[in-house]
């Protein structure tokens, strides 16, 4: 009998090693975990603990040295680079510490971009991007370029961009690190609200206690190993 609500992510013995000269750095050591659908998960730990590497592995931005990773029923550790690109385009969204908006595009065009990658018809993508920008409170800033917006506004655009394809999972790497605390709290509140509305799971890497305190599922990393998962 199958599990009625299988986990969104299942990682088994996930390891990542880097070679730096003659030295091998074990960034992630045999991590096994599962993340529920629609959960708000926070990966925390001190600097160098491997939380960003784990986030990159979960976001299919990096390939594990060993172990297996299953996301939304897909064994992503076996996919080719091209298939992984398509998987990321359809199923995953990303929010970065430095927002990583495309500077030559307006807020609206930035949000439209993932839909262009997925060949969503232009009319539909325009409507969906406008709706997303409205929902993050930037309806009046659609034609602004990243350089014409504040950090908080840029991160809202980044959130809209991450969610516009209705992904199963959004991965956020230190999303509040470049924001003041008030704006950071607003951004976290917005992510919670959007998670509630869309049912999208969020996995956030942070060492901000304010962010960590809002987690529904906490993953604590230390020296590349999983210290706690719950």
């Amino acid at each position: 009998m199958s599990d009625p609500d299988p986990p969104l992510i299942t990682a088994e013995h996930l390891s990542k090693e880097y070679r730096m000269g003659r030295e091998v750095v074990h960034a992630v050591r045999g991590v096994s975990l599962s993340i529920r659908r629609g959960a708000f998960t926070v990966i925390s730990g001190p600097s160098g603990s491997g939380k960003s590497t784990l986030l990159h592995l979960l976001g299919c931005l990096d390939k594990p040295t060993s172990g297996s990773l299953n996301i939304a029923g897909e064994n992503v550790s076996a996919l080719s680079d091209r298939a992984l690109s398509n998987f990321r385009a359809r199923r995953l969204g990303f929010i970065f510490q430095s927002f990583n908006l495309i500077p030559v595009l307006s807020a609206l065009e930035n949000v439209e971009y993932p839909m262009k990658i997925n060949r969503v018809p232009a009319d539909e993508s325009r409507v969906r991007a406008l709706e997303m920008l409205q929902s993050v409170g930037l309806g009046a800033h659609i034609s602004h370029r990243p350089t014409e917006m504040s950090g908080g506004q840029c991160q809202r655009v980044a959130i809209a961009r991450a969610l516009v394809m209705k992904p199963d999972l959004v991965l956020a790497d230190e999303p509040t690190a470049n924001l003041d605390s008030a704006t950071g709290e607003h951004i976290m509140a917005l992510m919670h609200e959007l998670k509630r509305q869309t049912g999208t799971a969020f996995v956030i890497s942070t060492h901000d206690p304010m962010v960590a305190s809002q987690a529904e599922q906490k993953i604590l990393m230390r020296d590349g190993c999983l210290q706690a998962n719950g």
């Binding site: 990321r88 990303f94 495309i102 990658i117």
Partner: peptide, 16 residues
């Protein structure tokens, strides 16, 4: 380079 990484993260293929 950062922008290139972002585009790839969003799903742009190497060939793209």
């Amino acid at each position: 380079l950062g922008e290139i990484g972002t585009l790839r993260a969003m799903g742009v293929t190497r060939m793209g």
